[in-house]
């Protein structure tokens, strides 16, 4: 929005420059405004649907918010997440190390690719959740079983992303490294892995998303602990606002974690996508 030059400085121009200033301020924060509007609208619809009510088991937004804040401050969430995050963190750490390693090896070696990649392709496309009942009676109902549930869901996507990233490393950059007589080791460490790292990292992000699904599933299917326990318990005593608050909290935690990882990825790994 540009104003004709001659208006500038004349007293009559004042309100219009002011208006344009406001407009500029507004458009600067346009995404933030849209976001607020979008979130506000969602909550409004929720509140109305809860007040109608569409179901006896559908609390209003405000009831859920109240339950959320109560559980946040009375320590219920803290205790639950201390339990839930344990298998998640351990499982993701193991999946990350093993998955990235296996992925890189599959990307570099034709034989490893032939032997291992199809297994991961099947595991990623297949509903691994079906195997969770199996883990239960082998590893019981403890941390081990839940960690395994996380690994089963997170590992294939991490390994496959690592594999694809390494396999599709920019051939022109690889040729460049070869033309400057880089050794095989230099080629891998200086070109292929840096070139693959954004996709590998994106794989870790997808793996974490899958891990969240896995840990919740484990807590709902194996034994109710942590956040799964909050959901199951409040459901059984018909405390629906508390139950919804627990569900919202896990979606919130996973969304915020994933968003933080994405921001990190943009800042550190992809200088070409960074806005300067």
């Amino acid at each position: 929005m540009s104003l004709p030059l001659h208006v500038k400085g004349s007293p009559r121009a004042l309100p219009s420059t002011e208006a344009s200033f406001l407009w500029r301020k507004l458009s600067e924060h346009r995404t933030a405004l849209w976001r607020t509007a979008s979130i506000g609208l969602f909550f409004l619809v929720w509140e109305i649907a809860g007040r109608v009510p569409i179901s006896f088991a559908f609390p209003t937004f405000l009831e859920t918010l109240r339950a959320f804040l109560t559980m946040l401050f009375n320590g219920a969430f803290v205790a639950a997440y201390a339990q839930t995050l344990q298998p998640l963190v351990i499982g993701i750490a193991i999946s990350a190390v093993v998955g990235v390693g296996v992925g890189i090896v599959m990307g570099l070696s034709r034989f490893a690719e032939w032997l291992v990649a199809p297994v991961f392709i099947v595991l990623q496309a297949a509903p691994m959740a079906a195997l969770i009942p199996l883990i239960t009676f082998v590893y019981g109902i403890g941390l081990m079983a839940k960690t395994l549930a996380v690994i089963m869901l997170a590992l294939p996507v991490i390994a496959l992303n690592g594999y694809k990233a390494v396999r599709n490393a920019n051939p022109s950059l690889v040729a460049m490294c070869v033309s400057f007589q880089g050794t095989r080791w230099q080629r891998i460490t200086k070109i292929i892995i840096p070139d693959a790292s954004p996709v590998i990292f994106a794989g870790l992000r997808l793996g974490l998303a899958a891990g969240f699904i896995g840990v919740i599933l484990a807590e709902l299917l194996i034994t109710p602990t942590g956040i799964g326990d909050l959901i199951t318990y409040h459901r059984s005593v018909a405390d629906y606002p508390e139950m919804y608050a627990a569900v919202v909290s896990i979606i919130l935690v996973s969304t915020l974690t994933l968003a933080a990882l994405e921001a990190f990825e943009l800042r550190v790994l992809r200088p070409e996508k960074r806005r300067t």
Partner: peptide, 20 residues
């Protein structure tokens, strides 16, 4: 703009928590 955030949240959210 209105739907974007929600679609992006739900595409990677642990929807298994919603099943109960």
């Amino acid at each position: 703009n209105l739907l974007g955030i929600w679609v992006n949240i739900f595409v990677s959210a642990p929807l298994s928590a919603l099943v109960p």
